[in-house]
């Protein structure tokens, strides 16, 4: 029995244009675009313009968590709410007491600076924001907050919470901003140890840990010591906690050690952050 053949005809000669030449042309354009973007960060500017297009997607992503939060509030009973309010009142009283102490210390510090003729500390403005979804875009961790250019957020602002430093604002849209977390491999901050004797640059690794790539081996650093921001550069105020030393690894060069630091705060462990904006 004869086999039924398909309707497709066999083509001996391919009449389609070869994509090789357009490929090389487009490859060249892509490489040029990538290198230009890497140098000038045009991606950030363009993303600001198209952020309105992304807004419905962000709304859809955030809707389930908003509904769950609202439901939790709606379903929580009166007694639990009373307890919660009482504990928050206690917390506020404690904080007010601490603020009073802080005010007197600040006045004392100011007077001493005047006597010693030390340059005045730049006043910092604190803005509170909430972290919103998505916390990843295509598998690359992101921290996005619900405050943007409309709330006077500017790129470069330091971001922290009560546990420690979180990162820095790198992209500002009208209603949201993107934070580069301290764990990102594009992040580095000048730090000082809690004993005040060791200075170094802490950088992100892309993993949940931080590192000081090369610290002189003679520095007396121990596991459990922690690092704070040094205030150099003027972006981060001095004294924000960064992380705790968890490993000291000798390098091939015996004069230096590699220091592994575990950050005090992780973007996954909180929902509210404070943005510190310099007046300058």
């Amino acid at each position: 029995m004869a086999k039924k053949t398909g309707t497709k005809k066999l083509k001996l000669f391919n009449t389609q244009a070869s994509p090789i030449l357009p490929f090389f042309l487009l490859l060249l354009i892509s490489i040029s675009l990538m290198s230009f973007d890497h140098r000038n960060h045009i991606n950030y500017d363009i993303k600001q313009y198209i952020s309105a297009l992304n807004a419905p997607i962000k709304f859809i992503i955030n809707t389930p968590s908003t509904i769950i939060q609202n439901l939790k509030i709606y379903l929580s009973d009166q007694e639990t709410l009373h307890k919660k309010i009482q504990s928050q009142k206690n917390e506020i009283n404690l904080l007010l007491l601490n603020a009073q102490k802080l005010q007197s210390l600040e006045n004392e510090n100011e007077n001493l600076r005047k006597i010693l003729q030390i340059k005045e500390i730049v006043k910092k403005e604190v803005i509170i924001a909430e972290i919103v979804l998505p916390n990843q875009i295509n598998g690359i961790p992101q921290v996005i907050i619900n405050k943007g250019a409309k709330d006077n957020i500017k790129p470069g602002s330091a971001v922290m919470n009560n546990q420690g430093l979180i990162g820095q604002v790198t992209q500002v849209n009208s209603n949201s901003s993107k934070i580069t977390p301290i764990t990102s491999n594009q992040f580095a901050v000048s730090a000082i140890s809690n004993k005040g004797s060791i200075n170094g640059i802490i950088s992100g690794t892309g993993n949940p840990l931080l590192e000081i790539r090369q610290l002189p081996a003679y520095e007396s650093l121990a596991i459990g010591d922690y690092f704070l921001t040094s205030g150099l550069g003027g972006i981060y105020p001095r004294g924000i906690k960064i992380g705790k030393v968890t490993k000291i690894i000798p390098t091939y060069n015996t004069q230096f050690n590699r220091i592994i630091i575990t950050p005090f705060s992780s973007p996954l462990s909180f929902s509210e952050v404070m943005l510190i904006r310099s007046d300058k």
Partner: peptide
């Protein structure tokens, strides 16, 4: 590829180059 880069990419041209190489 350029559209993907604009929406979710890290660099403009990254997904464009990837898609082009997959195509070729």
């Amino acid at each position: 590829g350029i559209l993907v880069d604009l929406f979710i990419g890290e660099l403009i041209g990254q997904y464009a180059i990837t898609f082009l190489i997959i195509y070729i």
